[in-house]
Design a protein around this nucleic acid. Structure first.
Ligand SMILES: NC(=O)c1ccc[n+]([C@@H]2O[C@H](COP(=O)([O-])OP(=O)(O)OC[C@H]3O[C@@H](n4cnc5c(N)ncnc54)[C@H](O)[C@@H]3O)[C@@H](O)[C@H]2O)c1
Ligand SMILES: NC(=O)c1ccc[n+]([C@@H]2O[C@H](COP(=O)([O-])OP(=O)(O)OC[C@H]3O[C@@H](n4cnc5c(N)ncnc54)[C@H](O)[C@@H]3O)[C@@H](O)[C@H]2O)c1
Lengths: 212, 212
DNA sequence: AATATATTGTGAATATATTCACAGTGTTAT
DNA sequence: ATAACACTGTGAATATATTCACAATATATT
């Protein structure tokens, strides 16, 4: 089966839910239960799990530990995958605080900012470099993913540099549409658009009734 | 036509692109150009625009000003729509900084935190209340949208309170799946899942070639 | 005035995603 | 043993989203 973007998103969510259930002492789960926790249908859960080649038992459902392992095998890199963060403002700091150490196979390995006050500071074990070092550090550290957390005005320039340095995936928090080569994967996390979207649906619910 | 979540997302993006083009002095645009800026197809652009009841001319394409107005009429509230923010940490502060004043019809009207040091402080014209005031302030101010920017451990409790206070749409930045009544619209912006997703596709590109 | 051109708007075709429906399976209760 | 049960895995049906393909339109050109 071809795994689409949505499949991947759901698998990532399942894994998070499953890990937390496992930590709570649970050992197995049924598609129906997982579906209810992940806000989707049992059929979707079963198909998604099928798509990664794992299968459960009609009697015990899915073994939590094995399923988590299968999902991880499918989604994660074999070795540690390194991530760069650009922009060490409020958002950047929050990202480091909450991301670092949470996922065993992912690590923020370098931080960049252009503010001289921030350069050479060390946070959560990673040093902040000048953005001028992007072309040097990223290939050296073998980083292929980057998070952009600089103001909108600087984002395109930063993105161009990152691509030039060999980055293949970008998580962009700046509220601009980046223009990049088609072989770069970009995920936009535009806060303003997100609030607008929620506001739209909240309004529909308020004035009309139910919704998505 | 029925407007789906994706239609709304694209319309919001078009509007942002169109506003910035208009500020640059442009007066009209063709579906092809907008599609290329929004990373979609011209047919999608035309259908989306059709769906809100606007139409362009086969010769001049779409009039920027009129199109922006039509989209806004479709997407925005008639009056100011008020938003609450819960959690005034790094992320919360960044959200206020970058959101407030950006959209004419949306405004963060109240901020809540449980840290006594933050309560009663005023930022960008909005006062920080104790979370205990949620049930009082939200109905009084007629707020129907909320942004959650507290740590994962507190998010579900905060969400329950918000729903009780009458909130209909939640933008959740905490990395937990919230369990809420089905008539509440929830948009999750989980940073960890987002990085994992980008890392997955970046890896696919790196090892295989092209991608989504 | 006729022709060529570029674009919109949209029905129809296609592709993708989701849901339905049920056979196959091991377990438990009788 | 056998029947009843609750679940998985999955082909088929359905629903949704996207793309194709082209008539209709207004202008520019000759
Ligand atoms: N999508 C979201 O969820 C979300 C939430 C909050 C903020 N944001 C966005 O994230 C961005 C950063 O927000 P913030 O609150 O951290 O801002 P901030 O002003 O606190 O920090 C920005 C940082 O980027 C650095 N910087 C600026 N230009 C740079 C450049 N060209 N190269 C390298 N570094 C540069 C600055 O020195 C500063 O350290 C903004 O665009 C904001 O809109 C997004
Ligand atoms: N999705 C994203 O893009 C993204 C990015 C960064 C951080 N985050 C998440 O956002 C959350 C906040 O991050 P941060 O860096 O601002 O954290 P922070 O520790 O700087 O701030 C958290 C704030 O919430 C307040 N708080 C804690 N519990 C509360 C409660 N029960 N009720 C009300 N207020 C409470 C604290 O007093 C503090 O002011 C975390 O869950 C983090 O994982 C998400």
């Amino acid at each position: 089966m071809k795994t689409s973007e949505k499949n991947i998103e759901r698998l990532l969510l399942y894994r998070r839910i499953l890990i937390s259930l496992k930590n709570g002492g649970k050992t197995n789960i049924y598609s129906k239960q997982l579906a209810s926790l992940a806000d989707c249908t049992p059929e979707q859960v079963r198909r998604d799990i099928m798509s990664i080649g794992y299968s459960g038992s009609p009697v015990h459902g899915y073994d939590l530990k094995k399923l988590i392992n299968s999902i991880s095998e499918f989604l994660d890199a074999n070795n540690l995958q390194k991530v760069a963060l650009v922009g060490l403002g409020h958002l950047g700091r929050s990202i480091i605080d909450y991301f670092q150490g949470r996922r065993p196979k992912l690590m923020i390995a370098a931080v960049f900012d252009r503010d001289p006050d921030k350069i050479d500071r060390v946070m959560h074990g990673c040093r902040c470099y000048s953005t001028e070092k992007i072309l040097e550090v990223i290939p050296k550290e073998n980083i292929n993913v980057a998070i952009i957390a600089v103001p909108a005005s600087g984002a395109q320039g930063v993105a161009d540099l990152l691509v030039q340095a060999g980055i293949k995936g970008i998580l962009n928090y700046a509220p601009v549409k980046l223009t990049l080569p088609p072989d770069i994967y970009v995920e936009n996390r535009d806060m303003i658009l997100a609030v607008e979207k929620v506001a739209y649906f909240a309004r529909k619910i308020t004035t009309e009734g139910s919704c998505t």
